[in-house]
Design a protein around this nucleic acid. Structure first.
Lengths: 342, 342
DNA sequence: TTGAAAGCGATACCAC
DNA sequence: GTGGTATCGCTTTCAA
């Protein structure tokens, strides 16, 4: 017995008024007596009235929902970013539509098309790869968070850390502990060969500043087709096999760092002494590891706040003061660089 | 310049046909010549036509989207369940609307109301607490996955492991290694004092079968207000403080197990020898721990498959062969019970 | 093979 | 204060 859903017309009939009045009352538009208001509200309540969202969106061509595109909600860093964004959007009266793209371009464009059809009011594109999948011909506000790539021009903004400074600080931390042979491990982006070299730049600039020569053999980049932890483990295992000595690892991501640390331990390397490791994200992976992994707090809450604010401004049709918002970060040293505990 | 969105009327005009024909072509309803079809398709494509979803849903009162309610997407177990469900739904032509409830009843009912308004075609309620927040007066198909509580009656189904068997097998594993003083640690459900005692039952039945007396001091349950890992750490730390000897821990969740293992290590306990620990979920937390944590594989993919099938049947208005689907599980022994490595 | 028109549910303008 | 009516974009009879 499909309980036919109750509409404002049903309520209007029961209250002996017109649908227009019901609509006005329900949306507090004013222009009705207190008596009718109360009568209508009571009836709406007892009938379990729920506004039909499709009708409303059709009429207003606004859905009050934002799409969140993210490569992997099962990665603690991204899921926390998603949660932070979602929470702030909810406060602002927007629902979030979370889409897991698995970094698959095909799935991404499929989603985007779907989202345009669904008339989302905006898109938050989290942690994307270089190319933006969002066709700018769709005139939608888009915020990129933690996106290393470049930007289109229309109604888009960008919130991230300063990637060059990020890897510089990570490398600097290792150097300050005396490391001279520092590997760079990445599984989700090809930092060395890619068009966006900001991550690579910080690393190499730091080395150069300290007069350390760059060694391509220490650039470890995976095909990122598998779980990042395992992949990182393989990469560093391979490095150990070559016999090339190294005393530090800059891991682009906490999961990467975790894979590195676990492999080093398993191979009998004293992590924090023989080899120091620093990750990036300050996510659960670095915290639960033993030894605890040094990492970088990237202030995801702040990213979320800036991103949501910018998005709301764009939706409101306002200009932004800044289209490239940089959020500060800070190194968090733990056992894998300090060498204590473990 | 808000690029006015193109509708079937625009296309109809351009093609010199009626909107009805355009609709028929776009939905492959038949009853049009090959020539018109091609003309319409070409124009639709070049105009970048995207069907207005709100109008479609309003007309069809179906949105082809399913809501996924889950307490915590940042928990690897849940996020993988979510991903598995989402993937299968996508294959079946449904979009997923992922909602993070943080186990907050208020947020849950807010979401549910919102979802009813949005006319989702069904709800998958993952890992919920005892009481279902879904008011049965909303005549929506609902699937509960990994939900320990009881069920309403209308258009609902339940997919989970056999919880009693689950804790029984966990406890049995510890007993088989000689453990006699086995603590039960839980932070997300009050298994001992709650109305649903199935998790507790497996534990106590196993003890009874082996003639081990039950000791209430070994029942550790947190207020689950904070991160489960930290909370578990505190609980087991408290147990150590009491001096009550114990040699095994049944941890209801891998995050719980991880908190337990880390604390035991930190307090100098030889995990896997002095105290054996078994978790539950076979998620990333047990795999990345050192020592690796014994756990239970709960076959989440199978849960997702059953859940989605059942949901699709309910949406189609079919009866289900089984409204309480039980998915098998299996113990995965690793270092924390085998005592190797670590 | 094609088209005209009704209707899904809500909003908003403009009369009354 | 209140109500009639057009409208959002699409699907679906029913006629032509």
């Amino acid at each position: 017995m499909p309980k036919r859903t109750v509409s404002i017309y049903d309520i209007a009939k029961l209250a002996g008024v017109s649908a227009a009045t019901v609509s006005n009352v329900l949306n507090d538009k004013g222009g009705f007596s207190k008596a009718t208001k109360e009568r209508i509200l009571a009836i709406a309540h007892e009938q379990g009235y729920v506004a039909n969202f499709a009708a409303k969106s059709l009429r207003e061509s606004s859905t009050k929902t934002i799409a969140l595109l993210t490569p992997d909600v099962s990665n603690d860093f991204f899921s926390n970013l998603v949660l932070a964004v979602e929470g702030r959007l909810r406060t602002a009266g927007y629902a979030s539509y979370i889409c897991n793209t698995a970094s698959d371009p095909e799935r991404e464009s499929h989603y985007v098309r779907d989202l345009v059809a669904k008339q989302v009011d905006g898109i938050v594109y989290i942690g994307g790869a270089t190319r933006s999948p969002i066709d700018v011909t769709f005139d939608l506000p888009v915020i990129h968070i933690d996106h290393t790539g470049s930007l289109g021009t229309k109604r888009e903004a960008h919130v991230s850390n300063d990637f060059t400074s990020l890897t510089n600080d990570m490398t600097e931390t290792l150097v300050s502990h005396g490391c001279r042979n520092i590997a760079l491990v990445s599984v989700s982006a090809t930092v060395y060969q890619s068009e966006d070299r900001s991550l690579y730049a910080g690393y190499s600039q730091c080395l150069a500043r300290h007069g350390i020569s760059f060694d391509e053999d220490l650039m470890l980049e995976g095909p990122h087709k598998q779980a990042s932890i395992d992949e990182a483990a393989e990469l560093v295992g391979g490095l150990l096999d070559t016999g090339r000595p190294f005393d530090g690892v800059v891991a682009l991501g906490d999961r990467v760092a975790l894979g590195v640390v676990n492999t080093l331990k398993r191979r009998g390397v004293n992590v924090g002494h023989d080899v120091r490791v620093i990750g990036m994200d300050d996510s659960i992976y670095s915290r639960i590891s033993t030894p605890a992994i040094s990492t970088v707090n990237r202030h995801t809450d702040e990213m979320a706040a800036h991103g949501v604010n910018a998005l709301l401004s764009l939706i409101a049709g306002e200009e932004l003061a800044e289209y490239h918002i940089i959020v500060p970060h800070e190194v968090v040293e733990r056992a894998t660089t300090l060498g204590i505990g473990g």
